[in-house]
């Protein structure tokens, strides 16, 4: 088989090219530490994501400047949305799907993975400057695929916290009874949180300075005399840092004896976007269960 000298030359050049490509990629992996999404994570059950990571998709702090973000993708949204992380942090994303194949791709970056039901994609990413990244699903996932988007907010250190606030109060109380407003504050950071829990109701403000240790939950109840407020609707709001949970309580002359499960809850419009997703999901589930339970009876 005779091969022309020029073609031999080209053959060598082609091999150099190929080996050069592989070498570049290897350099990226070994020297720069660029990692592929792999099989590090165990498989999960996509229809019942009830392990501690995905039952409540969220960001958690796992070390100094180290965070983990548990993300689920489903038709046609991501949870949580937005995902909020601080600047100068190392964030490991764990992403899985509740239904079909999606993707989780930060626009304008190299953070990009397929999201396959049953599999968990793990990606460690370093964020430097505060920035807002759009998240797209770049794998076709159904008729509303083009509406599936999310955000990752990399926020300045001082604006970042992982405080979860949940405040509850009865919808109706009888004049003369106390209105018990219970605020549950969870500090998901590792460091202690010094903050103020404040309740605003009517024209009055009650507050309490607290220090919550890292990973701890603090619960406090404000008892407000309903007589002072008088009959009628009263808006209340509990504030901790930037987080607010609010609703309305009605003071009535005499309480009707009818516990309507459905109107009891979820009249509160969550001002805090962070909680919106998770709250909605669990909230609706709970009401559905209540409702069906009531039907059976």
């Amino acid at each position: 088989m005779n091969i022309h000298t020029y073609e031999k030359l080209w053959l060598v050049a082609a091999m150099v090219l190929i080996v050069g490509f592989i070498a570049t990629i290897t350099y990226g992996s070994v020297a720069l530490g660029i990692t592929m999404v792999g099989d590090q994570q165990e498989t999960v059950e996509p229809t019942e994501l009830n392990d501690e990571r995905f039952s409540d998709p969220r960001v958690a702090q796992v070390g100094e400047n180290e965070y983990e973000a548990y993300v689920t993708a489903q038709m046609f949204s991501f949870q949580p949305d937005p995902i909020e992380v601080p600047e100068d942090s190392e964030v490991t994303f764990y992403v899985t799907s509740r239904d079909v194949i999606h993707s989780f791709s930060l626009v304008g970056t190299n953070v990009n993975t397929m999201v396959i039901p049953g599999e968990v994609a793990e990606m460690t990413v370093e964020f430097d400057e505060p920035e807002e990244y759009g998240v797209v699903c770049n794998e076709y996932c159904g008729p509303n695929h083009h509406n599936m988007e999310g955000m990752v907010h990399v926020v300045p250190e001082e604006e970042f916290d992982l405080t979860e606030l949940d405040a509850e109060a009865p919808d109706e109380v009888e004049t003369g009874d106390d209105i018990d407003v219970t605020a549950t504050v969870e500090n998901r950071l590792l460091d202690p949180l010094e903050t103020t829990v404040a309740l605003e109701i009517g024209n009055e403000t009650f507050s309490e300075d607290v220090t919550i240790d890292g990973g701890e939950t603090y619960e406090t109840t404000f008892a407000i005399d309903s007589t002072q407020l008088g009959e009628g609707d009263h808006d209340w709001a509990v504030t901790v840092g930037d987080h607010t949970d609010s609703s309305t309580v009605t003071v009535v002359d005499e309480l009707e004896d009818d516990a309507d499960g459905e109107t009891n809850e979820n009249t509160d419009e969550d001002a805090d976007g962070d909680e919106n997703g998770t709250e909605d999901e669990t909230g609706t589930d709970a009401t559905e269960n209540d409702a069906s339970g009531g039907d059976d009876e």
Binding site: G38, Q41, V120
Partner: peptide
């Protein structure tokens, strides 16, 4: 970018693919 397939397998596929350029 598929989760559930080890990086090593991906590397092997890449080597084959690159030689397919030849």
């Amino acid at each position: 970018l598929d989760p559930g397939i080890a990086e090593g397998f991906k590397f092997i596929a890449m080597t084959n693919t690159m030689f397919l350029l030849l």
